[in-house]
Design a protein around this nucleic acid. Structure first.
Lengths: 226, 226
DNA sequence: TTCATAGTTAAATATAGAATGAACTATTGA
DNA sequence: TCAATAGTTCATTCTATATTTAACTATGAA
C-alpha cells in the first residue's frame, strides 16, 4: 500500500507532469499538443509523460480523429491536485473584482451540480453584497429579502428546504480562494440559469459557456462583467 | 502560482519524502530518528529531507530536549496526503472484521471532533448492524429504535437536530476505506466516550487511546474487540 | 566528566529518469 | 495522391538531486 502511495506521489511530483496536472485542473480536456504548448516542452516529452500518467490511471484519453483528449480520470485525481493547489498561500485579494483575468471554470469537487469558478465566486459576492444571502460564522443563510429575491428569480427555496440534502453551504474554490454557493440552492441557481439559457454546458468539459443573453442578464442582475 | 504548485508537488513527490508523509498521516508527531527507521534510510538523509519539508512549510517541528518532533504543519497538508492515499484502489474488504490489524487512528479532515480510524469504522459498522442507524442512498439516518438507543446512551439527539450544523453524515476514512460517522452525532458520541473515560486524547497526537474500561464497554455495547 | 544518543552540516559520489534527436504511423484536408 | 498535422517510439545524452562518507554540535544519563 505504501509503495503505491509513493508511486502516485512520484508521478505527480515531476515538474512537467505537475504542470500537466495544473493545466488540466480547469476541468477541460486537452490534446497532447495543447499540453506540450501549455507546459512548454516537446511533443515527445509530453507523450512520454502522458503515457506514464495514463498507465497509472491518473488520466484518461478519448480519441477523436487524429486528436487525443486527455483529462483527469476521476474526481479523486482532481481532489489531489486541488488539495495541492490549496497549499499555495493565498494571494492578496484586491478590493476591486477583476474577474476578467480569471481562467474558465475550475474543477471543484462539487462543481458537478453547482456554479464554481469565476462566475460562482462573483455570483456569491453579488448575492452577499445585495444581502440576499448573509454570511454567519462560516455558513450562508438566506435573508428575508433573499427569500423574496429567490422567489422572484423563479427558484423555489421551499422545496429545497424539505430535502435531506444540505441546503446551502459555502464551498471554497481553490482558484479563486473565495467561497461560492454549493448545496441544493447552488444547484437550483445553476439549473435556473441553464433553463433560461444564460449558460450552457460544454460537451467534453466541466466548464460552462455563457450565452449572449447570459452576459446581459449577469450584468443586470449581479453586476458581473463576464 | 504555477511554479509554487510544481514546487509543492515535487517536494511530496520524492520517494523518501512521500514515505515520510505517509508515516505522518497517522496524525502523530515523529522524531527524526523514528522517521529514519520507518522510512528505512540514514539519519543524515532524513535530516536533509526534513529540512526541505520544513523550509517549504509542509511540516512543523517542536523541540523537546534532544528530540525533535515532526508533524504536518496544517490540515491542508494532511488533506493532500489523504487525497493521495485515496487514489490507491480499494482492497477487497473481508467479510469478517479484523480491526486488530489496523493502524491507530488516522488523520481525517474532520477527525478533530469525531471518531475516525479503526474504532470509528467499527463503531459505524456496529451501529448499522444493530439498525441504530440506517444507510439510505449515501446518507445515514437514525431509525426509531436508534432514537431510543441514543437516549439510553445518554446522547441527546434533539439538541443536535436543532443545530445548523450537519446532523449526521458518512465520512470516508482513507485508511479503512469504509464510512464512519461524522456530523454533530459523531461529535456527541465522541464526547460521551471521553466523558465516560472510555477513551482519552493523547497529548501531542490526533490519535486516541482506549482505557481498560473503554475496552470492556466497546465489546459490550458494540461487539468491538480493541 | 565521560559516554551514548539525537541530530546536523558539508563535500563527494552515484543514478534514476527527464529531455533530446531521429525516424516512424495515423489521420485529415487539399 | 500528396502534404501537413497529431502523436508515438526508441536509443542516446544529460543533469538534477538523492544518497553516502565523514566530521561535527547538543543534550542527557551514568
Amino acid at each position: 500500500m505504501e509503495d503505491q502511495f509513493i508511486k502516485a506521489a512520484g508521478l505527480i511530483g515531476d515538474a512537467t507532469r505537475a504542470a500537466i496536472m495544473w493545466t488540466l485542473l480547469d476541468g477541460r480536456a486537452f490534446t497532447a499538443t495543447e499540453l506540450s504548448i501549455a507546459v512548454n516542452t516537446s511533443p515527445q516529452n509530453i507523450s512520454m509523460h502522458l503515457g506514464k500518467l495514463l498507465e497509472a490511471n491518473l488520466l484518461s484519453v478519448e480519441k477523436q480523429g487524429r486528436h487525443k483528449y486527455y483529462r483527469f480520470s476521476s474526481k479523486e485525481v482532481a481532489y489531489v491536485v486541488e488539495a495541492m493547489a490549496n497549499l499555495i498561500p493565498k494571494p492578496e485579494i484586491s478590493s476591486k473584482k477583476k474577474i476578467e483575468n480569471y481562467p474558465p471554470v475550475k474543477y471543484c469537487r462539487t462543481c458537478y451540480d453547482h456554479l464554481a469558478g469565476k462566475i460562482g465566486v462573483a455570483l456569491a459576492d453579488s448575492l452577499l453584497e445585495q444581502k440576499i444571502i448573509i454570511e454567519k460564522n462560516n455558513t450562508f443563510e438566506i435573508s428575508p429579502e433573499g427569500e423574496k429575491w429567490f422567489s422572484d428569480f423563479g427558484v423555489n427555496i421551499g422545496d429545497a428546504k424539505k430535502q435531506k440534502r444540505i441546503f446551502l453551504k459555502p464551498c471554497l474554490d481553490w482558484s479563486e480562494r473565495r467561497y461560492h454557493i454549493a448545496g441544493s440552492v447552488g444547484t437550483l441557481l445553476l439549473n435556473k440559469m441553464l433553463e433560461q439559457d444564460w449558460i450552457r454546458r460544454t460537451k467534453d468539459s466541466r466548464a460552462i459557456i455563457i450565452t449572449g443573453k447570459g452576459e446581459k442578464e449577469m450584468l443586470k442582475n449581479f453586476k458581473i462583467v463576464v
